[in-house]
């Protein structure tokens, strides 16, 4: 560390908070513009998708286990699985696949 930990912490936390806080505090009016409203409707799903693919395929020890975990997540989500169920069972699938791979 070149600086005190506390200065690093202050910079890191400060920037992260300001990015979240400033737009949330400043935008007080309801937006009426149809294009902006539509843009804001799509944004959450677009952001989460971009963050998930392709990153999910390198989130575990092997690409194969991640791919199977991903497939399990998509199927469960399609058939209405809750956030918790999807997250837990895709983790379980990864664990099982990696366990089997060790013995074949």
């Amino acid at each position: 560390m070149n600086y005190s930990f506390w200065i690093y912490l202050l910079v890191m936390a400060g920037i992260t908070y300001l990015i979240r806080m400033i737009p949330f505090v400043l935008v007080k009016e309801k937006i009426k513009n149809r294009f902006i409203l539509s843009f804001l409707h799509y944004i959450p799903y677009a952001v989460l998708s971009v963050m998930t693919i392709p990153a999910i395929f390198s989130s575990t020890a092997t690409t194969l286990s991640a791919a199977i975990g991903f497939a399990v997540a998509v199927l469960l989500a399609y058939f209405g699985g809750s956030l918790l169920k999807v997250a837990a069972l895709s983790s379980a699938a990864v664990f099982i696949v990696e366990f089997i791979m060790k013995y074949i």
Binding site: S49, S59, A73, K85, A88
Partner: peptide
């Protein structure tokens, strides 16, 4: 993979 599972859900 848990966090990505949540995103998928």
């Amino acid at each position: 993979i848990a966090i990505y599972g949540m995103f998928v859900a």
